[in-house]
Simulated assay, not measured.
Amino acid sequence: MPKLPRISVSVKAAVLHDDHLLLLSYDDSDDGGDYHYNLPGGKAQEGEPLRDAVVRKVLEETGLHVRAVRELFVVEYVPGVFGFDLGPDHKTQHNFLAEITDGNTAARMCEPRDPMQRGVEWIPLADLPAKHLLPVKGQHILDALADKPGRDVLVDRW
């Protein structure tokens, strides 16, 4: 019987407000990377339901109170398929639509701050295709928000 994989589970939130999407910006060019954006989120804790993890991670990273509305899609990283670029662990990233629950849209950077993080920005949805998101999923976000028929809910490339 094959060995069961170690799987790292994380969550991300597509937080919308007035046709804008909340993104975190990062510059990791000193580490060989580049300027890019991420949705707020991170690893789920052991035993933590995914919706609860979304609420916790958005609050920690942006100070915003949200609720997870629905799952949009899943991004999967399989180490052997991707040349072990992101390490030996199989990873799944569950991307949710989230809505602000208290009307406060004044997002802030987390404390302690990630040294590579540059900001928290509300980006117009129309500008999303031009932004460098990691993993690359800008069109998947737009398709999921539009509930595009026939879209694949599993993004099997990082």
Score class of each variant (00 low, 15 high):
110 C>M: 15
135 P>A: 13
25 S>T: 14
111 E>L: 14
45 Q>E: 11
53 A>T: 00
136 V>H: 13
135 P>V: 11
107 A>S: 06
19 D>A: 07
112 P>H: 11
85 D>K: 14
85 D>E: 15
122 W>M: 03
129 P>F: 08
35 Y>G: 06
46 E>F: 03
39 L>K: 00
142 L>C: 01
120 V>G: 09
15 V>Y: 10
62 T>Y: 00
101 T>Y: 04
51 R>S: 15
111 E>H: 13
41 G>K: 02
31 D>N: 14
108 R>K: 12
51 R>W: 05
139 Q>K: 13
78 V>A: 10
116 M>G: 08
37 Y>S: 01
119 G>E: 09
127 D>F: 04
4 L>S: 13
61 E>I: 07
31 D>E: 15
99 E>R: 14
105 T>V: 15
99 E>H: 12
43 K>S: 15
66 V>K: 01
37 Y>W: 00
116 M>P: 01
7 I>A: 01
1 M>L: 13
70 R>Y: 06
75 V>A: 04
21 L>A: 03
42 G>D: 10
15 V>K: 13
124 P>L: 03
31 D>L: 14
134 L>N: 09
10 S>N: 10
19 D>T: 10
17 H>S: 08
24 L>F: 09
123 I>M: 11
143 D>R: 09
98 A>E: 07
56 R>G: 02
94 H>C: 00
123 I>V: 14
29 S>H: 04
50 L>E: 04
33 G>W: 03
118 R>E: 15
141 I>G: 11
82 F>Q: 12
79 P>Q: 05
137 K>D: 07
133 L>D: 04
11 V>R: 02
135 P>H: 10
52 D>W: 07
134 L>S: 11
15 V>P: 07
81 V>L: 06
20 H>S: 07
39 L>C: 00
94 H>Y: 05
39 L>H: 04
90 H>K: 07
12 K>P: 04
34 D>E: 13
65 H>M: 14
40 P>G: 09
86 L>M: 08
87 G>F: 02
29 S>C: 05
16 L>I: 12
63 G>D: 03
107 A>P: 03
61 E>Y: 05
